[in-house]
């Protein structure tokens, strides 16, 4: 089984640590992982702004880079959701359809495809889990608080395997952080207020780290934390699952 590692553009640029952790974690678990070097943006920011019709080129490039793999894994729920819901191609419709089926966010890949039951990870800290909306309501990584349906949480399932980690209970367990792609600058005031309120929920409940399967949310929350000179840090879930002492 060969896994194609999909590293979203901003992760590549700003959070290489998360991408390295993803790569190393998958390799530790015995998988063969390839990083196709010609990959670029998945087109989500454009599509979410109303320019889905301009994403043809991104789509073709994505297919060219990833069609050959058994699975495609990315440390970003939001980008994966975009590919799952919107990847299309007039030239290679079958390949597009196949990719939509075999693209996975890291957490769901670990719990659902390779069914990880133990990890060697150690992370002796209090951690708040930020549910990204695209991971939660798009990929159903956890049960959504609005629904009258049994509770489950794939990221929690994995965090429970990490030694020393203590998860904090939040007042609002799945409220949006306000990143929202271009929303973060177009609606700057609302975006920041939403982010500040999320940060407060985590810090007042004792989190030392905020983790998530989406770095876009974390980048936004980190920007706020750093401006506030807070001691709370953000860390991508891959880095926790790959952490050793």
């Amino acid at each position: 089984m060969t896994v194609g590692l999909f590293v979203p553009c901003y992760v590549n640029q700003f959070y290489p640590k998360a991408a390295k952790a993803t790569l190393q974690l998958l390799e530790k678990l015995g998988l063969e992982v390839d990083y196709p070097t010609q990959q670029t943006c998945c087109g989500q920011p454009m599509a979410n702004s109303g320019f889905e019709h301009l994403t043809t080129d991104c789509n073709e490039n994505f297919i060219r880079n990833f069609a050959q793999y058994d699975y495609i894994v990315a440390p970003s729920a939001s980008c994966v959701l975009h590919v799952k819901e919107h990847l299309s191609s007039a030239r290679q419709p079958e390949n597009a359809a196949l990719i939509r089926e075999k693209v996975y966010e890291l957490v769901e890949f670990l719990t659902d495809v390779i069914e990880v039951e133990r990890l060697d990870a150690v992370f002796p800290h209090k951690v708040g889990l930020h549910q990204s909306c695209h991971g939660l309501r798009g990929l159903h990584l956890s049960q959504m608080s609005e629904l009258n349906a049994p509770y489950f949480s794939k990221p929690e399932q994995l965090l429970n395997l990490v030694k020393g980690l203590e998860q904090v209970t939040l007042d609002r367990r799945d409220e949006c952080c306000g990143f929202g792609g271009t929303f973060c600058v177009a609606e700057e005031a609302v975006s920041v207020k939403m982010g500040k309120d999320r940060v407060t929920d985590h810090s007042k409940n004792g989190a030392e780290y905020i983790t998530s399967s989406d770095l876009s949310c974390l980048m936004h929350l980190e920007g706020i934390l750093n401006r506030q000179k807070s001691n709370v840090k953000v860390v991508h879930i891959a880095e926790i699952l790959n952490a050793s002492l």
Binding site: C9, Y10, Q13, Q38, T40, C41, C42, G43, P45, M46, L54, T55, D57, C58, E60, N61, R64
Partner: peptide, 9 residues
């Protein structure tokens, strides 16, 4: 090929 992606990035 790929130009849009890089440009957006």
């Amino acid at each position: 090929a790929g130009k849009a992606g890089r440009w957006f990035m």
